[in-house]
Design a protein around this nucleic acid. Structure first.
Length: 281
DNA sequence: CTCCAGGCGTTCC
DNA sequence: GGAACGCATGGA
């Protein structure tokens, strides 16, 4: 029955901190499990921990590790070069990188990222996780020891009254509309079309504003290099940078710069590690 | 009781 | 084009 952790591997990851990644607010399908974290994405499930720079992986297969999880953790990107570029900008960015040196920009499944960030608006992380979990358990395919994220077709087939039982509140019709859009192939070109085009496309959906669109395009669309400055909407980031910098200096790592800053403003009062993640849920 | 949580759509000027 | 305002829900 429980076969999703049958394959174990240790990987040496440069500038990689599992706990910082999970605390950086990018994904809503993870939970602590002892010294490990169980992460779900798409139909996959993995159990991960870290000792020094070694990432301990327990996943369903070697194929899943290399074809799904490594891309998920943005394994192909040169973070060393990115950090060197961003560190030169100013002392604030340098401090942010020092604090959140192991943060990565995840590359999550497209449909699930759109749906979870629509749910996230004006809510809290524990509550978001609760709604997403219920969504998977009710409507996602039974994988034996967990449930996959529901398909667009499945969600699109649900009535508004049924969806409303998830207690997502006023976001319920937004979820329905996004699922229908995805089921009709509306998201098929995300990651392939230019950033501005993708942004316009997704912001045409009800309940998708600049914030949800930005998170979606960055965490699922693979638009890190093209990430423009209009997404520096986080108030605390603007506290540091609004109107004070030529934003082109962040290019081509603006998306990563935002995540460093996002982590920094949440941990500026003290370094956090696995303990903080464990006590979150 | 009020206030807030990784916002957004609508309305009004 | 920008500034108020309401909004479902649940926890502090």
């Amino acid at each position: 029955m429980n076969n999703s952790f049958k394959y174990k591997a240790s990987l040496d990851m440069e500038a990689f901190d599992l706990w910082q990644i999970l605390l950086s607010g990018q994904c809503f399908r993870s939970a602590p499990d002892g010294d490990y974290a169980i992460i779900e994405a798409g139909s996959h499930r993995g159990r991960f921990s870290q000792e020094g720079s070694t990432l301990l992986c327990e996943v369903e297969s070697d194929e899943a590790l290399h074809n799904f999880w490594l891309p998920y953790f943005d394994g192909g990107r040169d973070y060393k070069t990115a950090r060197e570029h961003l560190s030169k900008i100013d002392s604030t960015m340098e401090a942010a990188i020092k604090t959140g040196h192991g943060v990565r920009v995840l590359r999550q499944p497209v449909f699930e990222t759109l749906i979870t960030f629509i749910i996230s608006q004006r809510s809290s992380i524990p509550r978001i996780k609760g709604v997403v979990k219920a969504l998977c358990e009710r409507y996602g395919e039974d994988m034996g020891d967990h449930h996959a994220f529901p398909t667009p077709e499945r969600l699109a087939s649900l009535g508004l009254d049924e969806l409303a039982t998830l207690k997502a509140g006023y976001r319920t019709p937004y979820l329905h509309a996004a699922a229908q859009f995805a089921a009709e192939g509306g998201l098929d070109l995300i990651g392939k079309m230019p950033y501005e085009e993708a942004k316009e496309l997704v912001m045409g959906l009800k309940g998708v504003g600049i914030k949800v669109a930005s998170c979606f395009l960055l965490f699922a669309g693979g638009y890190m290099e093209a990430f423009p400055i209009d997404v520096w909407i986080e108030k605390a980031i603007n506290r540091f940078y609004a109107g004070k910098l030529d934003h082109t200096v962040f290019s081509p790592y603006a998306g990563l710069a935002q995540q460093y800053m996002f982590y920094y403003i949440r941990h500026i009062d003290g370094a956090k590690g696995p303990e903080e993640y464990m006590k979150r849920i």
